[in-house]
């Protein structure tokens, strides 16, 4: 966060002098409230730093918001006081952001939407999408392939949102007909402490659990701690997701409890910022949709997804 503060101060000071010949790109993202968002903040900052160096004619304003209404204010401020030519936005929630972002688009500002789509189609010029249904599907397929018929699993869900619903729907679709029985799903809120508690209670409730779909690496940390503390040997593996570096490392080293991971790269914000910048400085067309698929990471390819410098 300290980098952001510094960056915005620099940006604010530099703005008036260069106002004539610079193009300002606004980047509005949710604050680092959990591991994945922390990684996303890191990659956004890194992309901004890199691009400001490569393209002196570009200037960036980066704002992080703690809730949807704060994000709306951030965007309004960017348009009113910084005269942005392009906006890269990762909406906190789709519904509340749709109207304000549509207003910005109507003023002729280029709009790039990242990860979560807006609830109305056709507002954005570029949509860099994460594939939540795909994330669930890849996870489900892994479970179906690696568990026997009749295997019993429990699942932890994220914060109740559209993202979480899409993931779970994809997962359920993929395990349909595989004979895997989902004993129960409960919200762990993408939080280590919550998922530790939920997993402890699952362990008390079910004497036999074959595998856990933690659906997120932060939750996997809590789940693993609960299993270890209970000393249970029946659980064959825990499937997390999103590619936290510590988890990828364990997969890379062949840890049997964490044989795989499913990516949902926080660096997709960098893809969006880079593409937007290219669109601003060159004549290369960048409008349309760019979907970042969720990939299965196993011991074989884990090295390609290991980013030791990222906070996530």
């Amino acid at each position: 966060m300290k980098h952001f503060a510094a960056a915005s101060i620099v940006a604010l000071c530099a703005a008036p002098a260069l106002a004539q010949d610079t193009t300002v790109i606004g980047v509005s993202i949710p604050a680092a409230t959990h591991g994945w968002a922390g990684g996303m903040n890191f990659h956004a900052q890194e992309a901004v730093d890199r691009l400001e160096e490569v393209y002196p004619e570009l200037d960036f304003v980066l704002a992080t918001a703690g809730d949807p209404s704060e994000q709306v204010s951030d965007i309004e401020d960017m348009v009113a006081t910084r005269g942005i030519s392009a906006l890269v936005v990762l909406p906190f929630e789709s519904e509340p952001l749709t109207g304000p972002v549509a207003n910005v688009a109507n003023q002729g500002v280029w709009v790039t939407v990242v990860d979560r789509g807006l609830s109305q189609e056709g507002i954005e010029d570029l949509y860099v999408a994460g594939d939540n249904t795909g994330f669930g599907q890849v996870s489900g397929e892994y479970m179906a392939e690696n568990l026997d018929e009749g295997a019993q699993i429990v699942a932890l869900r994220g914060i109740p949102t559209t993202i979480d619903n899409e993931r779970v729907a994809g997962f359920e679709q993929a395990i349909e007909g595989s004979g895997i029985e989902v004993l129960e799903m409960e919200h762990g809120n993408w939080n280590r402490d919550d998922s530790f508690t939920v997993m402890q209670d699952f362990l008390s409730k079910y004497p036999q659990i074959d595998a856990v779909w933690a659906s997120d690496d932060d939750m996997a940390v809590g789940v693993l701690a609960a299993i270890e503390a209970a000393g249970r040997e029946d659980i064959q593996f825990v499937l997390g997701g999103a590619g936290m570096k510590e988890m990828i490392q364990r997969t890379m080293e062949g840890d049997e409890m964490i044989p795989a991971n499913v990516t949902y790269p926080p660096a997709m914000i960098a893809t969006a910022i880079e593409l937007t910048a290219v669109g601003m400085v060159s004549s290369a067309p960048v409008s349309g949709q760019f979907t970042i698929g969720s990939v299965l990471v196993t011991e074989e390819n884990a090295e390609d997804y290991y980013y030791p410098d990222s906070p996530f």
Binding site: M1, A31, A32, G38, S310
Partner: peptide, 14 residues
């Protein structure tokens, strides 16, 4: 709350 986010650089301190 901000200080811990700052110390952790937005991520997790382990």
């Amino acid at each position: 709350r901000s200080l811990v986010t700052w110390l952790a650089d937005g991520g997790t301190l382990s």
